[in-house]
């Protein structure tokens, strides 16, 4: 069902009352689970994700020559979308196309940003559980994985920070004056064109760019600029989470 976002131009406020360049509430915790090597819990608005990392460990020999036997560690990602996460209860199979695409995206991203050459013949398993979904699914998964990998102590080049950016009018409206939007929720994602962008730390280096909806070429640059800007805000928040955790460890060690 299409959603009426035409009211945006009246007050320049979005459906949930945010302005164009505002992120939703982003909170995170790390080391949430004692049994895993690294774990994190991340909320982006109403999207809630738990991520656990095991490894680097010797990979399981599951028939055939896997790439885990090479000179670099293999990054494996498994995403589980809980049946209760959406509005309606829906079970997704393990080999859902969308899920496997997200898995590949995340695993490729971290394979290039982690120092995998330090761990030959081993696997790093990233397990992501999506408990509640309200847009920005891929971005939330990327951010949660970054935190869990940091918690696991796996060396990486920099934070991978992700967020989404969209545009205020749909492709068919072909509105030249459309504003870019930052961090879309589920309702906005259903109607508006949007992209997911992830950058490496505070640099402008783009690590992931996923655009699945149709959008005019002219609007893309604005969306991308807003997205990269949002990633920098996300980086500050993630950095704050990690530093707070580090401080707490130091305090408990001092006693």
């Amino acid at each position: 069902m299409p959603l009426d976002t035409s009211t945006y131009s009246l007050a320049l406020l979005r459906l949930d009352g945010r302005r164009w360049n505002e992120l939703r509430r982003l909170t995170a915790q790390i080391s949430t689970q004692a049994a895993a090597d690294g774990s994190s819990y991340l909320e982006m608005g109403n999207t809630k994700v738990i991520c656990t990392v095991t490894g680097p460990a010797e990979g399981k020999r599951t028939g055939g020559a896997g790439t885990g036997g090479g000179n670099e560690a293999e990054v494996r990602v498994e995403i589980g979308i809980a049946g209760f996460s959406g509005v309606d209860r829906k079970r997704r199979g393990r080999n859902d196309k969308r899920i496997s695409e997200m898995q590949t995206t995340i695993s490729n991203t971290f394979a290039s940003s982690l120092f995998t050459h330090l761990y030959p013949h081993s696997t790093i398993n990233i397990n992501i559980h999506i408990l509640s979904q309200d847009g920005s699914l891929l971005a939330a998964c990327l951010n949660a994985s970054t935190l869990a990998l940091i918690d696991a102590g796996i060396p990486m080049r920099n934070y991978i920070c992700a967020c989404t950016a969209g545009s205020t009018s749909s492709h068919s409206a072909n509105d030249e004056a459309a504003d870019p939007l930052l961090d879309l929720n589920n309702l906005e994602e259903q109607e508006l064109p949007f992209l997911t962008v992830a950058t490496v730390g505070e640099s402008d280096e783009v690590a992931v760019l996923v655009l699945e909806t149709r959008v005019q070429m002219g609007r893309l640059e604005g969306m991308l600029a807003v997205g990269v800007d949002g990633c920098k805000q996300v980086r500050e928040i993630l950095d704050g989470v990690v530093r707070r955790r580090g401080k707490r460890i130091l305090e408990s060690a001092a006693v």
Binding site: Q33, G80, G83, R89
Partner: peptide
């Protein structure tokens, strides 16, 4: 619908 997830 009861969905039980073991996270670890």
């Amino acid at each position: 619908y009861l969905d039980i997830l073991l996270l670890s």
